[in-house]
Design a protein around this nucleic acid. Structure first.
Lengths: 352, 352
DNA sequence: TTTAGCACTCAGGAATGCGGAGTGCTAAAT
DNA sequence: ATTTAGCACTCCGCATTCCTGAGTGCTAAA
């Protein structure tokens, strides 16, 4: 059953007032905005409460939106906030500046969102499966050390400095490189172990345990990249909000956000195609710790069809429109950043 | 003037009790540990207070060590805590496991210390000056993209994926690489800009703005590396401690810790040679925000004589011995990690 | 259907009182 | 000269009480 237009208007006013002030809103405040007496409003509010859209903290406070109320607000009442051109530009520019390795970009993006919204954020990378090494490069540093640079399928790059107890010639390094590239590329993590033994043995004369050293580094990297990386930031903003003046509450949430393994194993909700953001209000969250907080999520494309997620965590009393707009803008910026070069299909395709 | 042995013993008991319980300690509690009546203790405590080693929160609470009291405790009374072999081993092992790029290691080390001590930590890298690029490597990904790997003086490596609107041949890439390596290595940040213009112009025919693209990435990296990097972690632990039940206090400190630029411009105290840790108690800190917190610092060697610092932040009521021991262990582990291959001078040198 | 009026509820701040822990001081004991 | 027992005193923390103001629900009139 549909709510009357008036009830919706009242709900909307309550949500927006409450979001702005963090104080329960009473009938009088509303009667000032609508040309109705407070008594009428009270009747309507009583209905809304009955229907589960409002709650009261105690008998004689004003009303506060319930999660269900926020949900209705988000679904129907909220106006999509469009960021000004200026804001969009600034965000994109800030992202551009820090264009670097994938990990860094995402971390930076998270920090940016935290700063933009004044809420803690977290960002997850895709959790790539069946990753393989695409290429090894060994770079000579000096006679006893070299750097291994490996690149994966996903075009991510890792490197490490190796120091040896013995000298190594440029030629040996060259040999090692080709050996690695011919035998260990295109293999998944599981395929690597037995292969390793065989080849290492076979080429044993030329380079001690070097191969196994490098390959195990590669394996470490694969393992690391196949797991989701988690970045959190802006936890300090939590304490700014009145709902977290209670240290116990704040602590519970902060601990949750610091629990990287936990976050990384979160099931990512399927984000609907048309809009890339999703809002989870209070008890809609699965994690116990988030039952009275809200999460705004946006997904971004890493390329190769892989997706990552970036999210904002805050009290249910949150300016969803603004947060979603900003978050979405950053997520789009990220997608664009990773996708650059892969032309967006038909974007500038139509002539004229 | 020296304190009597007995006064020192009392001070020590007070510090240790207070550290353990977070409750001001009264005369009775002490008289239980020493074979003296509470009255005697009270007299002694009055003296200690007069001398500035103790404070009382109010008339009828017990006593609490003042910063000066902690200082004396740290300098003279505290027993160096030796970690058990087992603990040391565990720490080192944990460090080994995560042996990766410098940045990651340090970040990890910070997280580890936070977890080990239950206090927030921060870690700074050296702030390398007059850094130069040592070598460029360009790795072909596919016909329109390649990865640039640059290595600096300091053996740090950065990389970035470039995508082009046009095709690029392996030969062109090769050419570009040698060009970059001959003209842009060994130059400091300041030396790069004018040079760039000249050479880019000179070789313009072969590769559009590619050179300038790569070089400006290199410059970005240099700039980034010349500034200190800051890693903080474990802020969530702050709220565990009773002194930060006051949200205002906690927030002030957390904001300070999130203020990366501020931290990165901290003047690093010279750490004395024999011991690599330094303890700053309450008002000994320069930063206003730290006036009533303590900081334990340890420095580690990055190599090439460069040093970084890793620190723990917490209330003045801190188990200095334990924290210092753990921190120092990690810092040593780090130094060792970066220095591996550079044999420690004469460590096993003496025969028999 | 809306509104005015009124009795009712309840959080939260100020005022008060009380018990306990710990002190400082004095005078006796060693 | 120290140490100790004893006692009056201070002051936090806690609970209790009281009060006020904001906001409600209900009823009856417009």
């Amino acid at each position: 059953m549909e709510l009357s237009e008036r009830k919706k208007r009242i709900l909307r006013i309550i949500v927006e007032n409450y979001v702005a002030t963090a104080e329960p809103v009473g009938s009088k405040a509303i009667s000032a905005e609508l040309a109705l007496s407070s008594a009428t409003i009270r009747n309507e509010m009583a209905d809304l409460e009955e229907l589960g859209y409002l709650e009261k903290p105690h008998t004689s406070a004003g009303r506060v939106p319930s999660p269900k109320g926020y949900r209705l607000y988000v679904n129907e009442l909220m106006e999509e906030q469009r960021l000004s051109m200026e804001e969009t530009r600034q965000i994109n520019q800030a992202l551009q500046i820090k264009m670097q390795e994938l990990d860094r970009v995402i971390d930076q993006a998270g920090k940016m969102v935290a700063q933009l919204t004044n809420y803690p954020t977290f960002a997850l990378t895709g959790g790539l499966k069946r990753l393989t090494i695409r290429r090894f490069d060994l770079i000579m540093v000096d006679s006893t050390s070299f750097i291994v640079v490996i690149m994966t399928d996903s075009k991510q790059v890792r490197n490490k400095l190796f120091k040896l107890p013995t000298d190594l010639s440029e030629a040996q390094l060259q040999l090692l490189t080709t050996l690695l590239n011919t035998s260990f590329t295109g293999k998944t993590l599981e395929e690597l172990t037995p292969e390793l033994m065989r080849v290492a043995e076979h080429a044993a004369g030329s380079a001690y345990g070097l191969i196994s050293l490098v390959v195990s580094f590669a394996m470490e990297c694969l393992e690391d990249l196949e797991n989701r990386s988690v970045y959190t930031s802006g936890a300090n903003h939590l304490l700014e909000h009145p709902e977290y003046q209670d240290v116990g509450k704040a602590q519970k949430l902060m601990n949750y956000l610091s629990d990287t393994p936990r976050l990384s194993s979160l099931p990512l909700p399927e984000l609907s195609g048309d809009d890339n953001t999703k809002i989870l209000i209070g008890p809609e969250n699965v994690a116990e710790e988030l039952k009275d907080t809200s999460v705004v999520l946006a997904s971004y494309d890493i390329g190769d069809g892989m997706k990552g997620v970036i999210g904002v965590v805050g009290p249910t009393r949150m300016d969803y429109a603004k947060v979603a707009a900003k978050l979405s803008c950053v997520a789009e910026g990220l997608s664009h950043l990773f996708g650059q070069g892969e032309l967006p299909p038909g974007k500038d395709g139509e002539t004229k």
